[in-house]
Design a protein around this nucleic acid. Structure first.
Length: 576
RNA sequence: GGGCCCGUGGCUUAGCCAGGAUAAAGCACCGGCCUUCUAAGCCGGGGAUCGCGGGUUCGAAUCCCGUCGGGUCCGCCA
């Protein structure tokens, strides 16, 4: 509903500017949310310098030309109650109709109450690539940031009406995997262990052996050449290792509530000849230098050359990635890659090389590194905290909390809630901070479940659920269409309704800016205003008419909390 | 050495791209509130010259230049 309000303000403000003969070329009108009003315009500041008058005078002048339509004269009902000049600011406030309409829309179902607000063409297809960890070991906390950002991004864009496909690009041709395969055939795999953990054991051991004895290197190189050539026996050994590892990774992702629609193997692009075709095309279209058999592509504006073929003729990661992106581009309208900061230069090279090939450029969501207090993460050195261990421990911590409060619940129920709370807290922590922030991951801090993180929001949802459950038990009407929502004028009721009205607006801006931490922020704020309402406004004990109206509000709040949690990939418990 | 990112109360962050109303939250700390729907809650309090130095502007956390600290990348790794 806030979007409509904003549009209406834009409309009457533009009319007033024209009426007062002020010229202004930007469409934004400098409108922004404000703590002093429901929306405010700073346009008087900009006009002040141009017209050489104090901004206060301009604001007052504009205000004189603003006409807020009264419900009686407007053909469609206005959402604005009044406009006020506060010094240089022009403040606008919502009216009662806005509040009532917000709840009516929500009762109308879905999408923060308004499916028509989803302005994106359903036919726009977006492929999001995320996680894509090498199949040489389990996911660790660095991968977790990638996976959770990618997953929430997919959920946001799906919510906004795009057709989204998520892909996991499996780097099965790199040296790392060759080392794991080599290790798996030299050492004994622990088949009792989860696949990814069994693989990483031999991977780490193999790396130590390789460091100690350089002669082993040639064996790994030979393995890579034979795999690239499609040697059947080697391919079989690779598949064994990759699938075993991937099965473990998939299990971890599932536990995190993350799903990929498609797993794409980079080897496919070598075997299909797509990589070779890319190289041939780049030779024709690009600035290529050869050094021996190695091919180096020079791209405008990037000092660093891009090696697209090794001296021994085998392919490289970036070249295979080019083939993958061309393939992707043929089956979608937008491609978004979630990448760590270390891939930034490569992503720029990738973009330019793709443009050279006539392929549309992908968009990148780049996030900064996660490190441990002891230093950077390294699978090879065994210096990491696995996602599995983290989930295990955070669920155990959450269980302690549940146990403290709900001794009345069954064991299964307590475990179920601990799982929702633990995983939710983990996901929330990863998405609440903007991606360009470097994270030093401290296990103890992560286990110390943030009071105003996911559990806080889930708790608000549980409270709302509890009220609705008891209302049903007592035979109260919950979704009575004839409830008089105009009775909801207590300050905390009004604040809650306004916050509900912001949902679609927040989702809209997140979908275009891709700033996911704003979803997390909104969810927390909504929970906050609901908790204040909960404190100040008794529902079940209120007199009948007010009770029915408040039940509508609680129902709407539960709905939006549930939706926003779902966008964050966090489960919404009925009780906790 | 060069590119990119970060530097905001004791700690973690929002705000920065499109400069403006007392710099906004959480954690921690201090003090209140369970005979009304779950206290994983609510109310109140202290605490920040926005790394530092210049510049632009009527106005700078925000833009520009410099500088310091941290991270990351820099042709045959992925």
């Amino acid at each position: 509903m806030y979007l409509q309000f904003k549009r209406e303000v834009e409309h009457i403000l533009k009319a007033a500017l024209a009426d007062a003969s002020y010229e202004y070329e930007y469409s934004s009108l400098e409108l922004e949310e404000s703590e002093h009003a429901d929306i405010t315009s700073r346009i008087a500041f900009t006009l002040a310098s141009r017209y050489g008058k104090p901004p206060e005078n301009i604001a007052a002048d504009i205000l004189r030309h603003i006409t807020v339509p009264t419900p009686a004269e407007g053909r469609t009902r206005t959402l604005i109650s009044r406009a006020v000049a506060s010094g240089p600011y022009i403040n606008f406030y919502v009216n009662d109709y806005f509040l009532d309409a917000t709840l009516r829309r929500l009762k109308g179902g879905g999408g923060g109450g308004d499916n028509t607000e989803k302005r994106h063409d359903k036919s726009t297809r977006i492929i999001i690539e995320h996680t894509s960890a090498n199949p040489d070991g389990p996911l660790h906390i660095g991968h977790l940031r990638n996976a959770i950002i990618g997953d929430v991004l997919a959920r946001v864009l799906t919510y906004s009406g795009y057709q989204v496909e998520t892909q996991y690009y499996v780097n099965d041709m790199g040296r790392q995997v060759a080392v794991a395969v080599w290790g798996a055939s030299r050492l004994k795999l622990d088949t009792r262990k989860k696949g990814d953990h069994a693989i990483v054991d031999v991977y780490i051991a193999a790396n130590r052996m390789l460091e100690a004895n350089a002669a082993y290197r040639t064996e790994v190189d030979a393995l890579m050449r034979r795999y690239e050539a499609g040697d059947e026996e080697v391919v079989k050994r690779y598949e064994e290792v990759v699938q075993r590892c991937l099965a473990g990774i998939k299990a971890s992702l599932q536990r995190l509530n993350i799903h990929h629609d498609l797993f794409v193997f980079e080897s496919e692009f070598v075997r299909s000849g797509a990589v070779q075709r890319i190289i041939e095309e780049l030779k024709r279209r690009g600035d290529i230098k050869s050094e021996g058999s190695a091919l180096i592509l020079h791209l405008d504006g990037i000092e660093k050359g891009l090696v697209i073929q090794r001296a021994d003729g085998t392919s490289l990661y970036t070249t295979r990635d080019l083939a993958y992106h061309r393939w992707k581009s043929e089956r979608c309208d937008r491609m978004i890659d979630v990448l760590g900061k270390d891939h930034e230069l490569v992503s720029q090279q990738l973009r330019k090389a793709l443009l050279l090939l006539g392929v549309k450029a992908p968009e990148f969501v780049i996030f900064e590194f996660v490190s441990l207090p002891s230093g950077s993460l390294s699978t090879r050195a065994g210096r990491y905290i696995s996602a599995d261990e983290l989930m295990e421990r955070i669920e155990a911590r959450a269980y302690e909390e549940v146990e403290k409060r709900r001794m009345d619940l069954s064991e299964d129920k307590k475990r179920e809630i601990a799982r929702m709370v633990g995983i939710g807290a983990l996901r929330y922590d990863m998405v609440k901070v903007s991606p360009e922030k470097h994270i030093v991951f401290n296990l103890e801090d992560a286990l110390d479940i943030e009071k105003k993180g996911a559990p806080f929001i889930q708790y608000a949802h549980a409270r709302a659920s509890s009220i609705l459950r008891m209302a049903t038990d007592r035979g109260f009407k919950i979704d009575s269409a004839d409830a008089d929502v105009a009775l909801l004028r207590d300050k905390s009721e009004v604040e809650l309704i306004k916050k509900l009205a912001m949902f679609e607006y927040v989702m809209e801006s997140v979908a275009s800016e891709l700033k996911l931490h704003k979803v997390a922020r909104y969810a927390r704020e909504l929970a906050e205003v609901f908790n204040i309402f909960y404190k100040n406004c008794p529902v079940l004990n209120a007199e009948e008419e007010l009770r029915e109206a408040r039940l509508v509000l609680v129902d709407c709040t539960k709905q939006v909390l549930c939706e926003v949690l779902s966008v964050l990939g966090i489960e919404a418990p009925e009780e906790m």
